[in-house]
């Protein structure tokens, strides 16, 4: 999933400083799963903003809403009625940054703000802890590395083994980061495939990654 976290409250308060009435929109997709922008987090953020503004003697009205997803136009359409019937100063999205962009491209008369920082593609290591596992390079190569990704998980994206900074299974960048090359080595050893790591992994073609420009996938079989 896409893992995100809420922006600091102060940053969000600064965004809405001039507004009296806003719509705060959550998303039931990835950001609900990673506890960043679901119905509950929308409630907490709305409450925090209202408390802060009430305290200043400058109350703000906040309507809350959580869409099935914010990355599909059909759900974004559901904002049409509330936007028509209310005089919102702005819409704040609690989805990954796809959400506010989808709202912005659908409704051209309303200001849209992100309240989350979209961080990475990853998963939950345990409840409350998420880590990055994929960088979306567009050409998956993890089967060459025991199923682990050195592009996303090695701080230097090294493809031919650990750098000299790998110590005790940890990355030199931080003791909180596992050296993925140490994990790859252990796993390949376990699998009896160490020989594979002796081969030089060739220079990667990054044109399928963001380096080739913004990407798009078209499935003619699905298109209307």
């Amino acid at each position: 999933m896409i893992v995100a976290e809420r922006k600091p409250i102060k940053e969000i308060l600064a965004m809405v400083a001039d507004f009296k009435k806003i719509l705060l929109v959550g998303c039931k997709g990835c950001v609900t799963v990673c506890n960043a922008g679901g119905t509950k987090e929308v409630g907490i953020l709305a409450s925090a903003l209202k408390i802060a503004r009430k305290k200043e003697g400058n109350p703000i009205e906040i309507d809350e809403m959580t869409l099935e997803r914010q990355c599909d136009p059909e759900y974004i359409d559901q904002l049409e009625e509330p936007l028509k019937n209310n005089n919102y100063d702005a819409v704040l999205s609690m989805a990954c940054s796809v959400g506010p962009q989808f709202i912005a491209r659908r409704y051209d008369n309303i200001l849209v703000y992100p309240t989350l920082n979209t961080c990475f593609m990853g998963g939950a290591l345990e409840h409350g802890v998420w880590a990055e596992f994929c960088q979306g390079c567009g050409n998956c190569i993890i089967h060459h590395f025991g199923g682990l990704c050195p592009i996303a998980r090695c701080s230097k994206s090294l493809m031919n083994g650990p750098c000299g900074g790998s110590a005790g299974g940890k990355c030199e960048v931080s003791p909180d980061i596992d050296c993925v090359w140490h994990l790859i080595y252990d796993r390949m050893k376990q699998l009896g495939k160490l020989d594979q790591l002796r081969e030089i992994f060739p220079i990667k073609d990054w044109s399928t990654s963001r380096d080739g420009g913004p990407r798009k996938i078209v499935r003619e079989d699905l298109k209307k």
């Binding site: 083994g161 650990p162 750098c163 000299g164 140490h182 080595y185 252990d186």
Partner: peptide, 19 residues
């Protein structure tokens, strides 16, 4: 090129030299 005989995993260090 450089080589670090003291990095981990130690057993991989000679492989890296060979590469």
């Amino acid at each position: 090129a450089a080589a670090n005989p003291f990095g981990d995993p130690f057993e991989f260090r000679v492989t890296r030299l060979a590469k």
